[in-house]
């Protein structure tokens, strides 16, 4: 059991193949559903390219799986703030996703100045910043300033929410 797990862990890139297979199947199924009997102009209808892309997705999924099974590995991307020797820290990633989705959930309800501040503070917290006075202040300042600059100065509307109704 543990050996199977270890084997899979070593070859987790097979998951990418699986994603490609799923994508390919979705694209193909969706393409076959398109009715082409009417409205088609020219010899090539709206089906052809999706069928080509879907088939290629399946083909590449197989080739990638073969590559992984033969020992090929995708090289994880490096970067100036990236330490690849450390194991992946999924707690941080999940917290960050939470902060991002919180903004999406709140923006329509409480407006951008508040939801944006939640996003910034949440993300900074997730990434390890623990200044409980400075962080929310920066978040609120950035959020309100961005709102004013975009909404009032640049003419890009953002939802103000109840807070801006008061001010």
């Amino acid at each position: 059991m543990t050996t199977t797990k270890a084997w899979l862990r070593e070859r987790s890139e097979l998951g990418v193949s699986a994603v490609l297979v799923v994508l390919g199947v979705v694209v193909l199924v969706d393409a076959l559903r398109i009715h082409t009997d009417f409205a088609q102009r020219g010899p090539v209808g709206p089906k052809a390219v999706p069928i080509l892309v879907g088939s290629l997705l399946l083909l590449v999924a197989v080739l990638l799986a073969r590559d992984v099974l033969r020992g090929g590995r995708g090289e994880a991307e490096g970067g100036e703030d990236v330490d690849l020797t450390a194991p992946a820290d999924f707690r941080t990633v999940l917290l960050l996703c939470g902060a991002f989705l919180a903004n999406a959930a709140l923006i329509g309800v409480v407006g951008f100045p508040i939801s944006g501040a939640v996003l910034f503070w949440g993300a900074a917290y997730a990434l390890g910043s623990r200044h409980f006075v400075r962080d929310p202040l920066i978040a609120a300042g950035l959020s309100v300033a961005t709102f004013l600059v975009f909404n009032n100065l640049l003419g890009v509307p953002l939802p103000g929410g109840p807070l801006m109704g008061v001010l």
Binding site: D81, F112, L119, A123, L127
Partner: peptide, 23 residues
Amino acid sequence: RPYLYAGILFFASVGAYAVNADV
């Protein structure tokens, strides 16, 4: 770095939302 990447996510959200004003 926490501020840097929090800021990137923040402005990415502003940009994506500003395109169509759609969650």
